[in-house]
Design a protein around this nucleic acid. Structure first.
Lengths: 209, 209
DNA sequence: GTCTATAAAGAGATAGAC
DNA sequence: GTCTATCTCTTTATAGAC
Protein backbone atom coordinates (compact mmCIF):
# COMPACT_ATOMS: atom_id res chain seq x y z
CA UNK A 1 0.00 0.00 0.00
CA UNK A 2 2.86 2.32 0.69
CA UNK A 3 5.23 1.06 -1.97
CA UNK A 4 3.82 2.96 -4.97
CA UNK A 5 3.15 6.24 -3.22
CA UNK A 6 6.28 8.18 -4.28
CA UNK A 7 5.40 8.14 -7.98
CA UNK A 8 1.95 9.45 -7.20
CA UNK A 9 3.04 12.31 -4.95
CA UNK A 10 5.74 13.45 -7.33
CA UNK A 11 4.41 12.51 -10.78
CA UNK A 12 7.95 12.08 -11.99
CA UNK A 13 9.99 14.92 -10.66
CA UNK A 14 12.29 14.58 -13.64
CA UNK A 15 10.20 17.33 -15.22
CA UNK A 16 11.57 19.97 -12.96
CA UNK A 17 14.99 18.49 -13.34
CA UNK A 18 14.86 18.62 -17.11
CA UNK A 19 13.48 22.14 -17.03
CA UNK A 20 16.25 23.48 -14.85
CA UNK A 21 18.88 21.57 -16.78
CA UNK A 22 17.48 23.17 -19.90
CA UNK A 23 17.79 26.69 -18.53
CA UNK A 24 21.34 26.11 -17.39
CA UNK A 25 22.27 24.53 -20.69
CA UNK A 26 20.69 27.33 -22.67
CA UNK A 27 22.59 29.91 -20.65
CA UNK A 28 25.78 28.08 -21.40
CA UNK A 29 25.15 27.99 -25.12
CA UNK A 30 23.81 31.53 -25.29
CA UNK A 31 26.95 32.78 -23.62
CA UNK A 32 29.41 30.93 -25.78
CA UNK A 33 27.69 31.10 -29.18
CA UNK A 34 25.09 33.81 -28.75
CA UNK A 35 21.31 33.52 -28.63
CA UNK A 36 20.64 33.49 -32.37
CA UNK A 37 23.44 31.08 -33.15
CA UNK A 38 22.09 28.56 -30.67
CA UNK A 39 19.44 26.31 -32.17
CA UNK A 40 16.65 24.46 -30.41
CA UNK A 41 17.99 21.36 -32.14
CA UNK A 42 21.30 21.70 -30.32
CA UNK A 43 19.64 22.28 -26.99
CA UNK A 44 17.47 19.23 -27.44
CA UNK A 45 20.39 17.09 -28.55
CA UNK A 46 22.45 18.13 -25.52
CA UNK A 47 19.60 17.14 -23.24
CA UNK A 48 19.20 13.84 -25.06
CA UNK A 49 15.62 14.51 -26.12
CA UNK A 50 13.94 15.41 -29.38
CA UNK A 51 13.50 18.98 -30.44
CA UNK A 52 9.74 18.98 -30.07
CA UNK A 53 9.99 17.74 -26.49
CA UNK A 54 11.59 21.01 -25.49
CA UNK A 55 8.23 22.68 -25.86
CA UNK A 56 6.79 20.66 -23.03
CA UNK A 57 9.19 22.47 -20.68
CA UNK A 58 9.32 25.91 -22.20
CA UNK A 59 6.99 27.69 -24.55
CA UNK A 60 9.55 29.34 -26.80
CA UNK A 61 13.20 30.05 -27.24
CA UNK A 62 12.56 33.65 -26.23
CA UNK A 63 11.08 32.38 -22.99
CA UNK A 64 14.35 30.75 -22.18
CA UNK A 65 16.25 33.97 -22.68
CA UNK A 66 13.77 35.93 -20.66
CA UNK A 67 13.95 33.49 -17.74
CA UNK A 68 17.72 33.67 -17.77
CA UNK A 69 17.75 37.46 -17.71
CA UNK A 70 15.26 37.72 -14.87
CA UNK A 71 17.02 35.07 -12.84
CA UNK A 72 20.38 36.74 -13.39
CA UNK A 73 19.21 40.14 -12.21
CA UNK A 74 17.26 38.72 -9.30
CA UNK A 75 20.31 36.88 -8.05
CA UNK A 76 22.84 39.64 -8.40
CA UNK A 77 20.50 42.13 -6.81
CA UNK A 78 19.87 39.81 -3.90
CA UNK A 79 23.61 39.29 -3.49
CA UNK A 80 24.19 43.03 -3.40
CA UNK A 81 21.41 43.68 -0.92
CA UNK A 82 22.69 40.89 1.28
CA UNK A 83 26.15 42.44 1.24
CA UNK A 84 24.79 45.82 2.25
CA UNK A 85 22.02 44.77 4.58
CA UNK A 86 23.72 45.61 7.88
CA UNK A 87 24.41 49.13 6.70
CA UNK A 88 28.20 49.11 6.63
CA UNK A 89 30.08 52.40 6.65
CA UNK A 90 30.24 53.92 3.13
CA UNK A 91 33.85 53.01 2.51
CA UNK A 92 33.25 49.40 3.34
CA UNK A 93 29.98 49.31 1.46
CA UNK A 94 31.81 49.93 -1.80
CA UNK A 95 34.23 47.11 -1.18
CA UNK A 96 31.47 44.72 -0.21
CA UNK A 97 29.48 45.62 -3.27
CA UNK A 98 32.42 44.94 -5.55
CA UNK A 99 32.99 41.58 -3.89
CA UNK A 100 29.34 40.60 -4.05
CA UNK A 101 29.03 41.63 -7.69
CA UNK A 102 32.13 39.78 -8.82
CA UNK A 103 31.32 36.62 -6.88
CA UNK A 104 27.69 36.48 -7.98
CA UNK A 105 28.62 37.20 -11.59
CA UNK A 106 31.25 34.49 -11.73
CA UNK A 107 29.25 31.93 -9.79
CA UNK A 108 26.57 32.01 -12.48
CA UNK A 109 28.69 33.24 -15.27
CA UNK A 110 26.63 31.80 -18.11
CA UNK A 111 23.45 33.43 -16.88
CA UNK A 112 24.96 36.83 -16.21
CA UNK A 113 26.90 36.90 -19.45
CA UNK A 114 23.75 36.03 -21.35
CA UNK A 115 21.80 38.76 -19.62
CA UNK A 116 24.51 41.34 -20.22
CA UNK A 117 25.16 40.54 -23.87
CA UNK A 118 22.02 38.88 -25.27
CA UNK A 119 19.45 41.13 -23.70
CA UNK A 120 19.27 42.89 -27.05
CA UNK A 121 17.73 39.77 -28.58
CA UNK A 122 14.66 40.19 -26.41
CA UNK A 123 11.84 42.35 -27.66
CA UNK A 124 8.59 43.88 -26.54
CA UNK A 125 7.46 44.27 -22.95
CA UNK A 126 9.77 41.56 -21.69
CA UNK A 127 12.75 43.46 -22.96
CA UNK A 128 11.52 46.60 -21.27
CA UNK A 129 10.97 44.70 -18.05
CA UNK A 130 14.51 43.34 -18.00
CA UNK A 131 15.95 46.72 -18.85
CA UNK A 132 14.12 48.18 -15.89
CA UNK A 133 15.44 45.49 -13.58
CA UNK A 134 18.91 46.17 -14.83
CA UNK A 135 18.52 49.91 -14.32
CA UNK A 136 17.33 49.33 -10.79
CA UNK A 137 20.40 47.30 -10.04
CA UNK A 138 22.62 49.97 -11.50
CA UNK A 139 20.79 52.56 -9.42
CA UNK A 140 21.69 50.58 -6.32
CA UNK A 141 25.34 50.71 -7.33
CA UNK A 142 25.13 54.40 -8.10
CA UNK A 143 23.50 55.12 -4.77
CA UNK A 144 26.20 53.24 -2.92
CA UNK A 145 28.92 55.18 -4.70
CA UNK A 146 27.10 58.48 -4.21
CA UNK A 147 26.80 57.87 -0.48
CA UNK A 148 30.51 57.12 -0.30
CA UNK A 149 31.23 60.37 -2.07
CA UNK A 150 29.11 62.29 0.42
CA UNK A 151 30.94 60.60 3.26
CA UNK A 152 34.22 61.75 1.76
CA UNK A 153 35.57 58.30 1.02
CA UNK A 154 35.32 58.59 -2.77
CA UNK A 155 36.46 61.43 -4.97
CA UNK A 156 33.90 64.00 -6.07
CA UNK A 157 35.85 64.71 -9.21
CA UNK A 158 33.36 62.59 -11.13
CA UNK A 159 29.61 62.26 -10.98
CA UNK A 160 28.13 59.16 -9.34
CA UNK A 161 26.85 58.09 -12.74
CA UNK A 162 30.32 58.30 -14.22
CA UNK A 163 31.84 56.30 -11.40
CA UNK A 164 29.09 53.72 -11.75
CA UNK A 165 29.67 53.28 -15.45
CA UNK A 166 33.40 52.98 -14.90
CA UNK A 167 33.03 50.46 -12.09
CA UNK A 168 30.63 48.28 -14.04
CA UNK A 169 33.01 48.46 -16.99
CA UNK A 170 35.80 47.20 -14.81
CA UNK A 171 33.77 44.33 -13.38
CA UNK A 172 31.51 43.18 -16.18
CA UNK A 173 33.94 42.63 -19.02
CA UNK A 174 35.40 39.78 -16.96
CA UNK A 175 32.64 37.51 -18.29
CA UNK A 176 34.46 37.44 -21.62
CA UNK A 177 37.71 36.00 -20.35
CA UNK A 178 37.12 34.38 -16.98
CA UNK A 179 38.45 30.81 -17.02
CA UNK A 180 40.35 31.36 -20.22
CA UNK A 181 42.99 33.73 -19.02
CA UNK A 182 44.93 32.13 -16.20
CA UNK A 183 43.56 34.70 -13.76
CA UNK A 184 40.94 32.55 -12.26
CA UNK A 185 39.94 32.85 -8.65
CA UNK A 186 37.12 35.21 -7.73
CA UNK A 187 39.02 36.31 -4.64
CA UNK A 188 41.99 37.37 -6.70
CA UNK A 189 39.76 39.32 -9.04
CA UNK A 190 37.97 41.02 -6.17
CA UNK A 191 41.34 42.07 -4.86
CA UNK A 192 42.49 43.29 -8.27
CA UNK A 193 39.38 45.30 -9.05
CA UNK A 194 38.94 46.75 -5.57
CA UNK A 195 42.52 47.81 -5.50
CA UNK A 196 42.33 49.52 -8.87
CA UNK A 197 38.97 51.16 -8.33
CA UNK A 198 39.85 52.50 -4.91
CA UNK A 199 43.58 53.11 -5.04
CA UNK A 200 44.62 52.94 -8.66
CA UNK A 201 47.81 51.38 -9.92
CA UNK A 202 50.27 54.21 -9.44
CA UNK A 203 52.33 53.57 -6.29
CA UNK A 204 52.70 55.88 -3.34
CA UNK A 205 49.28 55.69 -1.84
CA UNK A 206 49.16 53.92 1.50
CA UNK A 207 46.08 51.72 1.81
CA UNK A 208 44.99 53.23 5.14
CA UNK A 209 47.05 55.89 6.81
CA UNK B 1 35.94 62.62 -78.02
CA UNK B 2 36.93 63.77 -74.55
CA UNK B 3 33.46 63.84 -73.14
CA UNK B 4 33.19 60.14 -72.32
CA UNK B 5 36.61 59.70 -70.82
CA UNK B 6 35.75 59.98 -67.13
CA UNK B 7 33.57 56.87 -67.22
CA UNK B 8 36.44 54.97 -68.79
CA UNK B 9 39.04 56.02 -66.26
CA UNK B 10 36.84 55.38 -63.28
CA UNK B 11 34.49 52.65 -64.50
CA UNK B 12 31.89 54.01 -62.17
CA UNK B 13 33.58 54.63 -58.87
CA UNK B 14 30.30 54.05 -57.13
CA UNK B 15 31.48 50.49 -56.73
CA UNK B 16 34.07 51.40 -54.17
CA UNK B 17 31.63 53.74 -52.58
CA UNK B 18 28.96 51.09 -52.24
CA UNK B 19 31.47 48.59 -50.94
CA UNK B 20 32.71 50.84 -48.17
CA UNK B 21 29.21 51.97 -47.32
CA UNK B 22 28.32 48.32 -47.03
CA UNK B 23 31.09 47.58 -44.58
CA UNK B 24 30.21 50.58 -42.42
CA UNK B 25 26.55 49.71 -42.49
CA UNK B 26 27.20 46.09 -41.63
CA UNK B 27 29.35 47.13 -38.68
CA UNK B 28 26.52 49.30 -37.46
CA UNK B 29 23.96 46.54 -37.65
CA UNK B 30 26.28 43.88 -36.29
CA UNK B 31 26.93 46.04 -33.27
CA UNK B 32 23.35 46.89 -32.49
CA UNK B 33 21.62 43.62 -33.35
CA UNK B 34 24.42 41.11 -33.51
CA UNK B 35 25.88 39.28 -36.49
CA UNK B 36 23.35 36.46 -36.70
CA UNK B 37 20.35 38.70 -36.16
CA UNK B 38 21.37 40.91 -39.07
CA UNK B 39 20.13 39.63 -42.42
CA UNK B 40 21.52 40.26 -45.85
CA UNK B 41 18.04 41.48 -46.78
CA UNK B 42 18.28 44.29 -44.25
CA UNK B 43 21.73 45.28 -45.41
CA UNK B 44 20.60 45.38 -49.03
CA UNK B 45 17.46 47.31 -48.20
CA UNK B 46 19.44 49.91 -46.25
CA UNK B 47 21.73 50.37 -49.22
CA UNK B 48 18.78 50.64 -51.57
CA UNK B 49 19.76 47.64 -53.68
CA UNK B 50 18.51 44.11 -54.01
CA UNK B 51 19.78 41.36 -51.83
CA UNK B 52 21.57 39.52 -54.61
CA UNK B 53 23.46 42.64 -55.61
CA UNK B 54 25.33 42.53 -52.35
CA UNK B 55 27.31 39.59 -53.64
CA UNK B 56 28.88 41.71 -56.30
CA UNK B 57 30.63 43.66 -53.55
CA UNK B 58 31.33 40.97 -51.01
CA UNK B 59 31.48 37.23 -51.34
CA UNK B 60 29.68 36.28 -48.14
CA UNK B 61 28.27 37.60 -44.92
CA UNK B 62 31.23 36.06 -43.09
CA UNK B 63 33.53 38.06 -45.32
CA UNK B 64 31.96 41.22 -44.07
CA UNK B 65 32.56 40.26 -40.46
CA UNK B 66 36.10 39.24 -41.19
CA UNK B 67 36.88 42.53 -42.91
CA UNK B 68 35.46 44.47 -40.01
CA UNK B 69 37.53 42.57 -37.46
CA UNK B 70 40.76 42.97 -39.38
CA UNK B 71 40.16 46.65 -40.02
CA UNK B 72 39.30 47.25 -36.37
CA UNK B 73 42.47 45.65 -35.08
CA UNK B 74 44.63 47.25 -37.71
CA UNK B 75 43.36 50.69 -36.80
CA UNK B 76 43.59 50.42 -33.05
CA UNK B 77 47.03 48.92 -33.27
CA UNK B 78 48.17 51.72 -35.51
CA UNK B 79 46.72 54.29 -33.13
CA UNK B 80 48.56 52.73 -30.20
CA UNK B 81 51.86 52.55 -32.06
CA UNK B 82 51.48 56.13 -33.15
CA UNK B 83 50.90 57.19 -29.56
CA UNK B 84 54.03 55.41 -28.39
CA UNK B 85 56.30 55.99 -31.36
CA UNK B 86 58.50 58.68 -29.81
CA UNK B 87 59.26 56.47 -26.83
CA UNK B 88 57.67 58.50 -24.04
CA UNK B 89 58.70 57.83 -20.45
CA UNK B 90 56.85 54.79 -19.03
CA UNK B 91 54.43 56.80 -16.91
CA UNK B 92 53.33 58.89 -19.84
CA UNK B 93 53.22 55.90 -22.15
CA UNK B 94 50.40 54.39 -20.10
CA UNK B 95 48.37 57.57 -20.25
CA UNK B 96 48.90 57.95 -23.96
CA UNK B 97 47.93 54.35 -24.57
CA UNK B 98 44.69 54.78 -22.66
CA UNK B 99 43.88 57.92 -24.61
CA UNK B 100 44.69 56.34 -27.96
CA UNK B 101 42.69 53.22 -27.19
CA UNK B 102 39.60 55.10 -26.04
CA UNK B 103 39.65 57.55 -28.92
CA UNK B 104 40.22 54.94 -31.60
CA UNK B 105 37.57 52.67 -30.12
CA UNK B 106 34.95 55.39 -29.98
CA UNK B 107 35.80 56.89 -33.31
CA UNK B 108 34.94 53.64 -35.03
CA UNK B 109 32.68 52.29 -32.39
CA UNK B 110 30.64 50.03 -34.65
CA UNK B 111 33.68 48.28 -36.01
CA UNK B 112 35.41 47.80 -32.69
CA UNK B 113 32.27 46.65 -30.92
CA UNK B 114 31.65 44.14 -33.67
CA UNK B 115 35.19 42.83 -33.45
CA UNK B 116 35.06 42.56 -29.66
CA UNK B 117 31.65 40.91 -29.40
CA UNK B 118 30.97 39.14 -32.70
CA UNK B 119 34.39 37.62 -33.23
CA UNK B 120 32.90 34.39 -31.90
CA UNK B 121 30.70 34.17 -34.99
CA UNK B 122 33.77 33.71 -37.16
CA UNK B 123 35.14 30.24 -37.71
CA UNK B 124 38.07 28.44 -39.19
CA UNK B 125 41.42 29.99 -40.07
CA UNK B 126 39.97 33.48 -40.29
CA UNK B 127 38.86 33.30 -36.71
CA UNK B 128 42.31 32.13 -35.67
CA UNK B 129 43.88 34.95 -37.61
CA UNK B 130 41.78 37.61 -35.91
CA UNK B 131 42.39 36.08 -32.50
CA UNK B 132 46.11 36.30 -33.15
CA UNK B 133 45.85 39.94 -34.17
CA UNK B 134 43.90 40.65 -31.03
CA UNK B 135 46.45 38.85 -28.87
CA UNK B 136 49.22 40.85 -30.44
CA UNK B 137 47.46 44.06 -29.60
CA UNK B 138 46.94 42.93 -26.03
CA UNK B 139 50.59 42.00 -25.84
CA UNK B 140 51.46 45.57 -26.77
CA UNK B 141 49.33 46.81 -23.88
CA UNK B 142 50.85 44.29 -21.51
CA UNK B 143 54.34 45.24 -22.52
CA UNK B 144 53.63 48.92 -21.94
CA UNK B 145 52.27 48.21 -18.49
CA UNK B 146 55.12 45.86 -17.66
CA UNK B 147 57.67 48.49 -18.62
CA UNK B 148 55.93 51.02 -16.39
CA UNK B 149 56.09 48.54 -13.53
CA UNK B 150 59.80 48.06 -14.04
CA UNK B 151 60.25 51.82 -14.06
CA UNK B 152 58.45 52.02 -10.73
CA UNK B 153 55.50 54.02 -11.97
CA UNK B 154 52.96 51.21 -11.62
CA UNK B 155 52.41 48.90 -8.70
CA UNK B 156 54.01 45.47 -8.79
CA UNK B 157 51.28 44.07 -6.61
CA UNK B 158 49.71 42.53 -9.70
CA UNK B 159 51.17 40.76 -12.70
CA UNK B 160 51.29 42.63 -16.01
CA UNK B 161 48.71 40.21 -17.39
CA UNK B 162 46.34 41.02 -14.54
CA UNK B 163 46.73 44.75 -15.00
CA UNK B 164 46.18 44.35 -18.74
CA UNK B 165 42.97 42.42 -18.28
CA UNK B 166 41.71 44.96 -15.77
CA UNK B 167 42.58 47.92 -17.96
CA UNK B 168 40.93 46.44 -21.03
CA UNK B 169 37.88 45.65 -18.89
CA UNK B 170 37.69 49.26 -17.86
CA UNK B 171 38.02 50.59 -21.39
CA UNK B 172 36.23 48.10 -23.60
CA UNK B 173 32.85 47.80 -21.91
CA UNK B 174 32.27 51.42 -22.91
CA UNK B 175 31.17 50.20 -26.35
CA UNK B 176 27.94 49.00 -24.78
CA UNK B 177 26.79 52.35 -23.43
CA UNK B 178 28.65 55.10 -25.25
CA UNK B 179 26.17 57.63 -26.65
CA UNK B 180 23.32 56.25 -24.61
CA UNK B 181 24.42 57.27 -21.18
CA UNK B 182 24.87 61.02 -21.04
CA UNK B 183 28.61 60.58 -20.54
CA UNK B 184 29.63 61.26 -24.03
CA UNK B 185 32.85 62.96 -24.91
CA UNK B 186 35.93 60.86 -25.51
CA UNK B 187 38.05 63.38 -23.63
CA UNK B 188 35.91 63.07 -20.54
CA UNK B 189 36.12 59.31 -20.69
CA UNK B 190 39.88 59.37 -21.11
CA UNK B 191 40.07 61.54 -18.03
CA UNK B 192 37.73 59.25 -16.08
CA UNK B 193 39.49 56.02 -16.99
CA UNK B 194 43.02 57.36 -16.64
CA UNK B 195 42.20 58.80 -13.29
CA UNK B 196 40.72 55.57 -12.00
CA UNK B 197 43.36 53.28 -13.43
CA UNK B 198 46.26 55.35 -12.18
CA UNK B 199 44.99 56.97 -9.00
CA UNK B 200 41.80 55.20 -8.04
CA UNK B 201 38.74 56.88 -6.61
CA UNK B 202 39.64 57.08 -2.94
CA UNK B 203 40.80 60.62 -2.13
CA UNK B 204 44.10 61.62 -0.61
CA UNK B 205 46.48 60.89 -3.41
CA UNK B 206 48.14 63.92 -4.94
CA UNK B 207 48.45 63.62 -8.70
CA UNK B 208 52.17 64.35 -8.76
CA UNK B 209 54.04 65.18 -5.60
C1' DG C 1 26.51 47.00 -60.95
C1' DT C 2 22.04 45.78 -60.50
C1' DC C 3 18.20 43.05 -61.60
C1' DT C 4 14.62 38.69 -61.45
C1' DA C 5 14.16 34.17 -60.22
C1' DT C 6 15.26 30.33 -57.66
C1' DA C 7 17.74 27.05 -55.28
C1' DA C 8 18.91 24.68 -50.96
C1' DA C 9 19.27 24.53 -46.33
C1' DG C 10 17.99 25.69 -41.66
C1' DA C 11 15.12 27.87 -38.38
C1' DG C 12 11.20 27.83 -34.61
C1' DA C 13 7.07 25.79 -33.59
C1' DT C 14 2.71 22.61 -33.59
C1' DA C 15 -0.38 18.21 -33.89
C1' DG C 16 -1.39 14.21 -32.16
C1' DA C 17 0.07 9.36 -30.90
C1' DC C 18 1.99 6.80 -27.07
C1' DG D 1 7.30 13.60 -20.90
C1' DT D 2 8.76 12.12 -25.03
C1' DC D 3 8.01 10.62 -29.57
C1' DT D 4 7.27 10.99 -35.12
C1' DA D 5 5.86 13.78 -38.62
C1' DT D 6 5.15 18.01 -40.62
C1' DC D 7 4.28 22.97 -41.34
C1' DT D 8 5.71 27.38 -42.37
C1' DC D 9 8.83 30.84 -42.60
C1' DT D 10 13.42 32.73 -43.14
C1' DT D 11 17.97 32.35 -44.22
C1' DT D 12 22.33 32.69 -47.29
C1' DA D 13 23.73 32.22 -51.71
C1' DT D 14 23.85 31.40 -56.94
C1' DA D 15 22.51 31.69 -62.12
C1' DG D 16 22.01 34.31 -65.75
C1' DA D 17 19.68 38.37 -68.10
C1' DC D 18 20.30 43.34 -68.82
Amino acid sequence: MSSEVPEKVRPRQSGELTASRLVALAARQFRSKGFHATTTRELAASLGIKKSSLYYHVSSKDDLLYSICVESLTRIRKAAEEALKDAPPPAEAVERLIAAHVRAMLEDRDMHATMLVELRALSGPRRDEVIIMRSEYEALVEQTLGTAQEAGTLTKEFAPRELTLALLNLLNWTIFWYHESGVDTPDRLVSLFSSIFLDGTAPGKPADS
